[in-house]
């Protein structure tokens, strides 16, 4: 069972012109088996909060415990290899790798042989419902929905049971959006993932098990 505890976490960053307090004293808890939605207007700090949960940024104050471990004290790269995966609005697939090779990447990163990685990657792609013909295609040859599925398959391949999704349907049409949401729900409810989705789409929020709202860096 996966669990993330956030206690009084704050974070700010400096852009060209000013210091932005993106996250202010946020406290919350996430558990496996549920689909969480974090909503809010643009600039409310949702994506920054997600990057803190992913360990891509380090909180200035407060504590984030991932399965009891303080995220700021452990190897966050290892955490992203084995526990936490992130998918993005822009999909962020490697443009020069095929769909299969993209999904193989995290497996090879863990030292799995190429042959075994191909096998497991193919299973993940099959799991997210992609046809065989997609496997050998490059991202630019795929639709948005297909790319996002590949991204989710890549997240599954990493074997971690925590999936963070930053506006995963932001670049998709309504039909693909529904497919992706359905996939995320299945991962949470049937595969016991802890799924956190950052979205400003109220429809997605409505389908989530728990909905949290961020405004001006604070969470309700």
């Amino acid at each position: 069972m996966e669990r993330i505890e956030v206690k009084e976490v704050s974070y700010s960053y400096q852009n060209k012109y000013q210091k932005i307090e993106a996250v202010k004293e946020v406290s919350c808890t996430f558990e496996s088996g549920k689909l969480y939605a974090i909503t809010g207007e643009s600039g409310s700090g949702k994506s920054t909060f997600l990057s803190l949960l992913a360990g891509l940024d380090c909180a200035e104050s407060g504590v984030i415990l991932v399965n009891g471990e303080n995220l700021s004290e452990i190897d966050r790269d290892a955490c992203r290899r084995k526990q936490i995966s992130v998918v993005y609005q822009a999909f962020h697939l490697f443009p020069l790798l095929t769909a299969l090779e993209n999904v193989m990447y995290p497996l090879e990163l863990q030292g799995i042989s190429r042959r075994e990685a191909r096998k497991q990657a193919a299973e993940c792609l099959e799991e997210v419902g992609l046809e065989e013909k997609i496997l050998g295609q490059y991202p630019k040859m795929m639709s948005g929905g297909e790319q996002q599925r590949v991204a989710i398959a890549r997240a599954m391949a990493a074997k971690g049971k925590i999936l963070l999704a930053d506006e995963p349907t932001g670049n998709l049409d309504s039909e693909n959006e529904a497919h992706i949401v359905e996939l995320l729900k299945r991962m949470a409810h049937e595969m016991d993932y802890l799924v956190i989705v950052v979205t400003h789409n109220p429809e997605i929020a409505r389908q989530a098990d728990v909905c949290m709202r961020m405004k001006d860096g604070r969470m309700n």
Binding site: D77, R80, R81, S85, V86, L109, A158
Partner: peptide
Amino acid sequence: RGEYAIMRALGTGK
């Protein structure tokens, strides 16, 4: 940069 960022996001050490 994007490729580097994706690698880091997937857990490849710096």
